[in-house]
């Protein structure tokens, strides 16, 4: 039914990048995330799967405090990145988000040129001393986003004029441009066609060299293809978290098995 997880992509045991302990999230009175504890490893693709409304996107948005922009949302518990509590009062969420990049479900390039889209983050954070350095950052980001060859001749064209798949890779390049340490992806392929999806998946696999990547996906095949670790969420609980190959071949929890075989969802 789904691709067999390739054995070459077995998780290499590395450092823990993000450590979440007993995280609870409430939307007003709605308890959306319950007691989630998870350790996300560096230089690994971690997939969050689960039925709609299970809280996987909400939990993802806790990792860079995007939930702060929603008034009624409250987060309890402890989330540490490299051992630092990101919900500590001394942490500036704006700085945090530069360190933890995010790619969204629908490609959302700014209505600016391709160049300005990429240069947006570096400019805000003052990462370049001069134009030449900025050019270099933009080129590097576009190359990492695997889109440089397609757009190098039209960097001044509007980013909104690209195709859906190109736009999403542009958004990934834009997130990469601020030199994040973690890359969060919220269903990055759900608005793309199969070819663009394949390109983005290939890109995700390359990004693993440099970043900890966390991806939320509805497609179990995609989770199996791109990730080394998989977390299964159900009704706000983290049901099972293990190597992707184990989750898809030999899950411990019966709910996980029901979900991946299509019996609940």
């Amino acid at each position: 039914m789904y691709d067999a997880p390739s054995t070459t992509k077995e998780a290499v045991v590395t450092d823990v990048k993000i450590q979440a302990n007993d995280v609870q999230v409430y939307y007003a009175d709605n308890h959306a995330i319950k007691d989630v504890s998870v350790a996300i490893q560096d230089k690994t693709v971690t997939a969050f799967i689960g039925p709609s409304g299970c809280g996987k996107s909400t939990f993802l948005r806790c990792l860079n405090r995007m939930n702060d922009t929603i008034d009624i949302c409250r987060v309890h518990g402890k989330i540490e990145i490299d051992g630092e509590d990101i919900y500590d009062k001394r942490v500036d969420p704006v700085q945090l988000r530069a360190k933890v990049g995010m790619v969204f479900q629908k490609p959302n390039p700014f209505p600016k040129s391709i160049y300005d889209n990429i240069a947006y983050g570096p400019r805000i954070h003052g990462m370049a001393r001069n134009k030449a350095e900025l050019d270099e950052i933009v080129e590097r980001a576009l190359r990492r986003g695997a889109i440089w060859d397609e757009v190098k001749d039209r960097l001044n064209a509007p980013g909104t004029g690209l195709s859906g798949g190109q736009q999403q890779r542009l958004c990934i390049a834009r997130a990469v441009a601020t030199e994040p340490e973690v890359l969060l992806m919220d269903e990055p392929c759900s608005a793309l066609d199969p070819i663009a999806t394949a390109q983005v998946e290939e890109l995700i696999d390359e990004l693993r060299q440099n970043y900890a990547v966390v991806i939320v996906t509805h497609s179990m095949q995609q989770a199996a293809r791109v990730s080394q670790r998989t977390a299964f969420f159900h009704l706000g609980h983290l049901v099972e978290y293990d190597d992707t190959s184990k989750i898809f071949t030999n899950p411990e929890d019966s709910r996980t098995e029901s979900y991946i075989t299509g019996r609940i969802g």
Binding site: V94, K106, G121
Partner: peptide, 25 residues
């Protein structure tokens, strides 16, 4: 809202987002 999310996700403050993304759009 996706425009704002994109900008916040890159570590922009609210007024930076308004000045550089929302108003130009």
């Amino acid at each position: 809202q996706a425009m704002r999310d994109g900008s916040y996700g890159l570590g922009a403050t609210q007024s930076e987002t308004i000045r550089q993304v929302v108003l130009p759009a």
